[in-house]
């Protein structure tokens, strides 16, 4: 199966690879997938006082499309508010990367990862 140029670009030059301090209160961590299924994505966001995502980092175990989906997602969420980030749909990721049907689940995983990261961040915030 041939990969799209965008998948290859993100796979060969992944953006925002790394780790944020998962214990920090301004950091949300989402880890989705399972080793037995062949993909695990860890997405982390750092959120400013204004509710805007300042930084995002990822690490992914999975196929090229899974790595590209998470790399693209980190680019997209930076500068977005949590509400905006939550609106990102897997179909937009799949479209941007021209994922074939058999790889659409990689984009679903990325959508799940950002939602999990936002939930984790919000669970850490003091209730007013």
């Amino acid at each position: 199966m041939a990969y799209s140029d965008k998948v290859i670009d993100h796979y060969e030059n992944p953006r925002n690879v790394g780790v944020l301090d998962k214990t920090a209160t301004d950091v949300g961590t989402g880890m989705v997938g399972a080793p037995a299924c062949g993909d695990v994505m860890r997405l982390q966001i750092q959120v400013g006082d204004d509710g805007v995502i300042k930084d995002a980092k990822f690490k992914t175990y999975g196929c090229g499309s899974a790595i590209a989906s998470s790399s693209l997602l980190t680019e997209w969420v930076k500068g977005k508010t949590l509400d905006e980030a939550r609106q990102i749909k897997n179909s937009a990721i799949a479209e941007e990367l021209a994922l074939p049907p058999v790889k659409v689940h990689c984009s679903v995983l990325a959508e799940d990862a950002i939602k999990a990261a936002i939930s984790d961040y919000q669970a850490k915030q003091p209730v007013d």
Binding site: P14, V17, V19, M31, P35, V40, M41, R42, K59, T60, Y61, I67
Partner: peptide, 8 residues
């Protein structure tokens, strides 16, 4: 492996 959360 540097990209892999499992390796971490």
């Amino acid at each position: 492996r540097e990209l892999s959360p499992l390796w971490d």
